[in-house]
Simulated assay, not measured.
Amino acid sequence: MAGQLKLGLALSYWSAGPPPGLAELVATAEGLGYESMWAAEAYGSDALTPLAWLGSRTTRMRLGTGIAQMSARTPVATAMAAMTLDHLSGGRFVLGLGASGPQVVEGWYGQPYPRPLERTREYVAIVRQVLARERVAYHGKHYQLPHPGGTGLGKALRSTVHPLRTDLPVMLAAEGPRNVALAAEIADGWISVFYPARDDAFYRKALAEGFSRPGARHTQDAFEVTCKVEVEIADDVEAAADRVRPLLALYVGGMGAKGANFHYEVFARMGFEAACTRVQDLYLAGHKAEAAAAVPLAMVEAVALVGPPAKIADDLAAWRESAVTTLLVSGDVAKLAAIADLVHR
C-alpha cells in the first residue's frame, strides 16, 4: 500500500451559508488530480445535497458523504438517497456513515444514542438489503421492518429503483478500536480522523481484528481508509501549528461533554492525556485562546502536516507507510495545488 496515497477534497461545514466559490474550487481540485470529494453534516447543512449540486460540475471525482449521520435518516431513506446519487453520478457515489455523538444524536435529531455499535450493524444490514433489491424485512433490537404495530398493514417492500451498483461502497466513521474493527468487518472502508501516521500499530491491530472475523467483507489490501488531515505550509513550524491548534482545542475540549468526548480519548491514547486534560479544562471554562495555546507541537505533528514544503514532503513518508489510502484536505486553490504537488511527487 506504500506510495499509493490518493487525495480527496474535504468540503468544510457551512457556517451561516455556503462558502463562496465552491463550484470553482471543486472543478479546480478535479483538474489537480483530486480523486474524490467529501461532504459532512452535523446540525446545519446536510451531506447529500452539496454532492448532488457540486458533483454535477465534475466528471471523474467520487462523491462521498464524510459523513451522513445515521440518526438523521432511517436506513431505507439513506439507501434511497445513495441509489439516487449513484445513478445521477454514473456510479461515483460512496456512502460514508457515522453514529456521531450523544449531544447531536439526542439533542438535535431526538434519537437515542446508547449502543451505537449495535445500531450501526443493524443499519448497514438494512442498507445492504435495499441495495441488493431484496424485500426489506428486518427484526433487530433497534430497527424493525415492517413496523411491529400501528395499523398492522405494513408489508415488506422492494425498491422500485434498480440500483446501479448492488456493491455500492459503504464506509464507516470510527475512532475507538471496537468501532474500527466493526468497520473492517462489515464495511468497505473506514473514515478516520486524527490518525497518528507515525505510530499506527494500534489501529492496524483493530483493523486486523475486524478482517479476521467470520464473514468479513475484505482484507486490508482491498479496504479503503480515508483521513482528514490538516495541512499548513509555512517556513515557521510553530506558526503553521498555530493554525491547527484552535481546531484541536475545539475537538479535544469542546466536542463532547467532559468524560464523554471521543476525540479526547483518541489523543489520550496517543500519550497526550495530560495535555488533553489541560486543554479541556481551559476550553470548558471559556478560555478558548489559552486552550489552543496549550496544545503541544508534538500533538499537532502527530495528526497534521505542518511546516515548510521540504519538511511536509519528508513527513508524508509516514503517511505512505500507514494504513491510510486517501488523505482528505481542504483549502483555497493555491493551497490545494501546493498539497497536490507534494503528494504526487
Rank of each mutant, 00 (worst) to 15 (best):
M83Y: 00
M83F: 01
L85V: 04
D86K: 00
D86V: 01
D86E: 07
L88S: 05
S89V: 03
S89T: 04
S89C: 05
G90P: 07
G90L: 11
G90N: 10
G90T: 07
G91I: 05
G91N: 06
G91E: 09
R92K: 09
F93P: 05
F93K: 04
V94T: 12
V94Y: 00
L95G: 03
G96H: 06
G96P: 07
L97V: 05
G98N: 08
G98C: 10
S100K: 06
S100L: 12
S100D: 13
G101N: 14
P102Y: 03
Q103A: 15
V104L: 15
V104Y: 07
V104A: 14
V104R: 08
V105C: 11
V105I: 15
V105W: 05
V105Q: 11
E106H: 06
E106F: 04
G107I: 10
G107M: 12
W108L: 14
G110R: 06
P112S: 13
Y113G: 01
Y113L: 02
Y113Q: 02
Y113F: 15
P114D: 13
P114E: 13
P114G: 11
R115N: 13
R115S: 12
P116S: 04
P116H: 01
L117F: 01
L117I: 11
L117C: 05
L117D: 08
R119W: 02
T120A: 11
T120H: 02
T120F: 01
E122Y: 01
E122Q: 06
E122V: 03
Y123G: 08
V124D: 03
V124A: 05
A125C: 02
A125W: 00
I126E: 04
V127C: 13
R128A: 09
Q129Y: 01
V130D: 03
L131M: 07
L131H: 01
L131V: 02
A132P: 00
A132Y: 00
A132I: 02
E134S: 12
R135L: 10
R135S: 14
R135Q: 15
V136D: 13
A137V: 10
Y138N: 09
H139E: 15
H139S: 15
H139G: 15
G140I: 08
G140S: 12
G140V: 10
G140N: 13
K141F: 02
K141V: 11
H142P: 04
Y143D: 13
Y143M: 12
Y143K: 10
L145C: 07
L145Y: 13
P146D: 14
H147M: 15
G149Q: 14
G150D: 13
G150S: 11
G150N: 11
G150A: 12
T151F: 10
T151Y: 07
L153G: 02
G154A: 15
G154T: 12
K155T: 14
A156Y: 01
A156S: 15
R158N: 02
S159M: 12
S159D: 08
T160D: 14
H162L: 14
H162G: 05
